[in-house]
């Protein structure tokens, strides 16, 4: 009797255990994840900042994609630069291509000298919080709020607030693009470091309204378009855009701009 009382539960649990164990081992075989040795090696070479500047969701994903697809270039890691690119090429045995340095830029020139605030924001010191109220406190609803969400995410100390707008130090910036993603206004972008001519405005309103909000806002007058000899600058949606493939950094448009919103 005693043996029966002890043996039955023991047997039942052994049976359950064996069933569970078998099911799990079968499943772990069926759903096995193949681990590529190269992925681990590349992961060690990459900076591990998971910034996403390469266009993939973090270093691990980039390492996976490099191994899976030979079309993925080895020079996409911007914080790592040429060193990392060369090491990855060695691991994969592919040819090394030099990467071009990229920096981020705030496409707004609206300092407190040229534009103003239309209400007094006293809330939490964060652009995304300020942006919840009437798209921010600035006269220009496209412009930099200057509360420094980008400064908080920058790991390289490259951003500072100068005259109430964010300014990026191109000597420190590595072009990871973290600030680009955090800006609630979406006015931070990446471009090649060699590119010197930049439209420092993001305002898409009609010229009249831009003018009343900020004295250095792009009014879409198309003077730059007419001056450019290389067909590289065009006004779309009331704002000048530069085609960086055609631009030769001559700076003629910057000289022609009546509101000085193009810098060179």
């Amino acid at each position: 009797m005693l043996i029966k009382e002890i043996l039955t539960p023991a047997l039942i649990f052994i049976g359950l255990g064996i069933f569970a164990g078998l099911l799990l081992s079968i499943c772990s075989k069926v759903f096995a994840v193949e681990v590529n040795e190269k992925v681990e090696k590349i992961k060690e070479v990459l900076p591990g900042a998971n910034c996403g500047a390469c266009g993939f969701s973090g270093c691990e994903d980039y390492a996976n994609k490099l191994c899976e697809n030979s079309d993925v270039k080895t020079n996409l890691c911007i914080p790592g630069g040429n060193d990392v690119s060369m090491k990855i090429s060695e691991i994969l045995g592919t040819t090394f291509e030099e990467s071009e340095p990229i920096v981020s830029e705030v496409y707004c020139n609206g300092t407190n000298k040229v534009t103003g605030k239309f209400f007094d924001y006293q809330g939490f010191e964060s652009c995304s919080a300020c942006n919840l109220y009437y798209s921010g406190d600035g006269n220009c609803s496209y412009g930099c709020l200057g509360l420094g969400d980008c400064i908080k995410v920058c790991e390289y100390g490259a951003i500072s607030i100068v005259d109430a707008i964010a300014t990026i130090d191109h000597n420190k910036c590595v072009g990871c693009g973290l600030c680009k993603d955090v800006c609630p206004k979406g006015i931070i972008g990446l471009h090649k470091k060699a590119q010197k001519v930049i439209v420092k405005c993001s305002n898409c309103d009609m010229g009249k309204f831009t003018r009343s909000a900020c004295s250095v806002g792009c009014i879409g007058c198309k003077k730059c378009e007419k001056t450019c000899n290389y067909d590289a600058i065009h006004v779309e949606n009331n704002k000048a855009h530069i085609d960086y493939d055609k631009c030769t950094n001559c700076g003629e448009c910057a000289k022609a701009c009546p509101v000085n919103c193009i810098i060179s």
């Binding site: 039955t8 539960p9 039942i12 649990f13 359950l16 255990g17 569970a20 099911l23 799990l24 499943c27 772990s28 759903f31 096995a32 994840v33």
Partner: peptide
């Protein structure tokens, strides 16, 4: 088998089994 007193133990075993399954499938 009059083993109601073992239900907690048996249930934990079954739950652990399915959690492991979910883990394997999600990982894949």
């Amino acid at each position: 088998n009059n083993l109601q007193y073992l239900n907690t133990m048996a249930f934990i075993l079954i739950i652990a089994l399915f959690v492991q399954l979910v883990e394997i499938i999600l990982k894949k």
